[in-house]
Amino acid sequence: MKRWLSNAEVSLGNHSDRLNAINIFPVADGDTGTNLYLTLCAATEAAAEADTADIGELLGLAGRAAMESARGNSGTLFSVFLTSMAEPLAGAVRLSAPLLGAALQRAQLRSWSVLSDPVPGTMLSVLEAAAHAASDSEAAITGDDSNAGLALTLRAMMDAALAAVVDTENQLDALTEARVVDAGGVGFLLILDALRAAALGEELQEELLDGLHGYDVQAPHIHAHMPRMEGVEVMCTINLSPLDAATLRLQLDEMGDSVIMSAVSPVEDGYRWRVHVHTPDAGATIDLLRRLGEPMNLSITELSADGHETRELPVITPNPDFPGFPGAGETSKAHGL
């Protein structure tokens, strides 16, 4: 598992520029590769420091670390994937076909549920195809926990995931018009291939992405010419009761889109949540968050107007452990929020 995350980090680092170039959904802001890579770095670091033979515990630690510093839609969904995949693996010390099928099924159900408006043709579709292929494999169905059964299941998973990536171009109008596959789907395919390689002691498939539309190194930066949303991406973690969490999701749906809310861990009277939204009004969004709780790790990132880079606006939130730390009001005023 540690080798999987480490290899995935290297793979995404090598491909991040091209993933950014074809990033046009849900916003053409050219940052999917960067967001996935930076989120994976947090997961890899946490996994490397973990001292456990329990692969579920390991992935849970990695997933929670990724969740706390997740970047963008893709990074947040990857964090959800890791934390939910860890649940059926709790107590296991080796991966098998039945466990892989169960873990991927749990991950795809949770990943679809955290989005207010899940859309086919994204990394969600790739995860769903991979989960079905793994859980429908003969080894998973018969309970075959041999290495040979795992190998066949992983290869079936990869075949299904690759087919799903190719199909993303036909599932979203923006991708069809641009003749390009989904960037998040491709990034997730690379993550799955790193899992296959690590589990089987094989190399990454260098030819895996050959022929994917828009992915050739000579292809242009597709996102640079696509319409994009005006506004910002707001992300934070916040402790909420179940009722307040439901209220927040409902009101965020009214204020913006690309709403993702995922429970990170239990806290007193509720859960710690990771929140993500694209909104035209950062001030109103932050006011809403602060009416319900105290947002932590709060960041506001402009949805790039030129399609080449995003500029993160640092937002300082009060920290009770450091009384002299500047308050949120000062920073909010500085950014006109």
Rank of each mutant, 00 (worst) to 15 (best):
residue 289 L to R: 09
residue 244 D to P: 06
residue 249 R to Y: 02
residue 174 A to G: 06
residue 238 I to G: 01
residue 267 V to M: 09
residue 216 D to I: 00
residue 224 A to W: 08
residue 168 T to C: 06
residue 214 G to A: 11
residue 226 M to C: 09
residue 251 Q to I: 14
residue 232 V to M: 03
residue 183 A to P: 12
residue 180 V to D: 08
residue 261 M to Q: 08
residue 169 E to T: 12
residue 210 D to G: 04
residue 260 I to T: 01
residue 192 L to C: 10
residue 163 A to T: 03
residue 217 V to A: 15
residue 273 W to A: 01
residue 238 I to R: 11
residue 175 L to M: 10
residue 259 V to T: 03
residue 281 D to S: 10
residue 167 D to Y: 14
residue 208 L to E: 10
residue 221 H to Y: 06
residue 182 D to L: 07
residue 229 M to I: 00
residue 243 L to R: 12
residue 242 P to V: 03
residue 208 L to A: 11
residue 202 E to C: 01
residue 224 A to L: 11
residue 183 A to D: 05
residue 179 R to L: 07
residue 194 A to Q: 13
residue 224 A to M: 09
residue 285 T to F: 01
residue 174 A to P: 00
residue 238 I to Q: 13
residue 263 A to C: 00
residue 180 V to E: 04
residue 290 R to D: 04
residue 205 Q to A: 10
residue 261 M to K: 00
residue 216 D to A: 15
residue 274 R to M: 08
residue 187 G to P: 06
residue 225 H to E: 10
residue 271 Y to R: 09
residue 280 P to V: 02
residue 230 E to T: 15
residue 289 L to S: 10
residue 266 P to A: 14
residue 272 R to I: 04
residue 220 P to G: 12
residue 167 D to R: 14
residue 283 G to W: 11
residue 241 S to W: 13
residue 211 G to I: 03
residue 169 E to F: 01
residue 275 V to E: 09
residue 209 L to S: 03
residue 293 G to V: 12
residue 168 T to R: 05
residue 201 G to R: 10
residue 258 S to F: 09
residue 202 E to D: 11
residue 252 L to R: 00
residue 240 L to H: 08
residue 199 A to D: 00
residue 170 N to G: 09
residue 291 R to M: 11
residue 198 A to L: 07
residue 178 A to I: 10
residue 214 G to E: 14
residue 201 G to L: 09
residue 231 G to C: 10
residue 233 E to I: 01
residue 216 D to G: 14
residue 222 I to D: 02
residue 203 E to C: 03
residue 263 A to W: 00
residue 254 E to G: 01
residue 203 E to V: 02
residue 190 L to R: 01
residue 194 A to V: 09
residue 180 V to A: 04
residue 292 L to S: 12
residue 267 V to E: 12
residue 207 E to G: 02
residue 218 Q to T: 14
residue 220 P to K: 05
residue 283 G to R: 12
